[in-house]
């Protein structure tokens, strides 16, 4: 499992560098203005980050909804649906820079690693859908100024990724921006600090309970091309997958749960190789090599 996480963290690192490849922006305090900013990235990555090469889909969605000309963005919703239907929340587990930061924070050793109770988790998990519907859709659609424009309410009042990736670096690098710091900035920094501290104790607390992009992608987990499959013939109900899942999912019961970020820990932890992931795996027969070796260890015949 450690190897899987190393591989995943390496992919997360590459992804974070790839979407924030305008390195000189981190020195001169200017954001990238090239044509790639027309294209959304599949993850929550603030377009005002000095390194950002693409557009954040959640920010873009609010920008189009809040503009004078449009009430909804077919371009961004189509893009998000395309990523969702292809991969589900795989991008949360493998590509998102803010998810990567939370993964690293959770590695900090502390006595206070909290497991959210099933009851609390079952309620809190709906919060991210409320954030998406209220802050990303309804408020930008309805609360408009006299010119017919509206603010990106999620970005303005909640998004900790924007504070970390854009707010802090830009205010450090620009004297004029630094002089404009007020209550809103302090509120966002406080929110970021809270999420950082919570992320040390609770695995992926932002992704699980707040992220509107994760909420949107989660709707596609059960139907996406990429999926996780449990071979019931191989499953020995040992619970290893569930015990190793940091998102508290009963993998053998619901492998494509809306909460699954597809990190792959369950796959690596399964002693019989009953869990697989991939695209078009619906009709694939899993190889029996791993289950045979496990049965051999138990002194059983694989044909019995």
């Amino acid at each position: 499992m450690a190897n899987n996480n190393k591989k995943r963290h390496f992919v997360q690192l590459l992804s974070s560098i790839a979407v924030n490849g305008n390195f000189k922006g981190f020195f001169n305090g200017r954001i990238y203005t090239g044509k790639t900013k027309k294209i959304c990235v599949p993850i929550l990555n603030c377009y005002s980050c000095p390194g950002a090469l693409g557009a954040c889909p959640i920010g873009s969605l609010q920008a189009v909804i809040g503009s004078i000309k449009y009430n909804i963005s077919y371009y961004v919703l189509g893009f998000m649906s395309l990523i969702g239907v292809m991969f589900g929340r795989l991008v949360c587990g493998w590509l998102c820079p803010f998810g990567f930061i939370q993964d690293l924070l959770y590695k900090i050793p502390t006595k206070f690693k909290l497991t959210v109770s099933k009851k609390a988790n079952n309620i809190l998990k709906y919060l991210k859908y409320a954030v998406f519907i209220i802050f990303v859709l309804i408020l930008p659609m309805t609360l408009r100024d006299q010119f017919g424009m509206s603010d990106p309410y999620f970005c303005k009042y909640i998004c900790p990724a924007g504070t970390l990736e854009a707010g802090i670096p830009l205010t450090l690098l620009n004297k004029s921006l630094r002089s404009a710091i007020g209550f809103l900035f302090n509120w966002k920094v406080l929110l970021l600090i809270t999420i950082v501290i919570l992320s040390i104790s609770v695995y992926r607390v932002f992704c699980r309970y707040i992220c509107p992009l994760g909420a949107f992608y989660s709707l596609f987990n059960s139907i996406s091309f990429y999926k996780i499959k449990v071979d019931k013939d191989k499953c020995i109900n040992c619970n290893a997958c569930t015990n190793n899942c940091k998102m508290n999912i009963e993998v053998y019961k619901k492998p494509n749960s809306a909460e699954c970020i597809r990190c792959g820990d369950c796959i690596k932890s399964c002693p019989t190789g009953a869990i697989k992931s991939g695209i078009f795996i619906d009709n694939e027969r899993f190889k029996t090599k791993k289950v045979n070796s496990y049965n051999a260890k138990l002194g059983k015949s694989s044909n019995s």
Partner: peptide, 28 residues
């Protein structure tokens, strides 16, 4: 939807937002 949105000119709105510092996003 992506093509329809592009045809409506939404990409220009996305670009205008993404290519300028978003003061709301950074908390200013």
């Amino acid at each position: 939807l992506i093509f329809f949105g592009g045809f409506r000119g939404e990409i220009g709105t996305v670009f205008n937002k993404a290519a300028n510092i978003c003061l709301e996003c950074i908390g200013i």
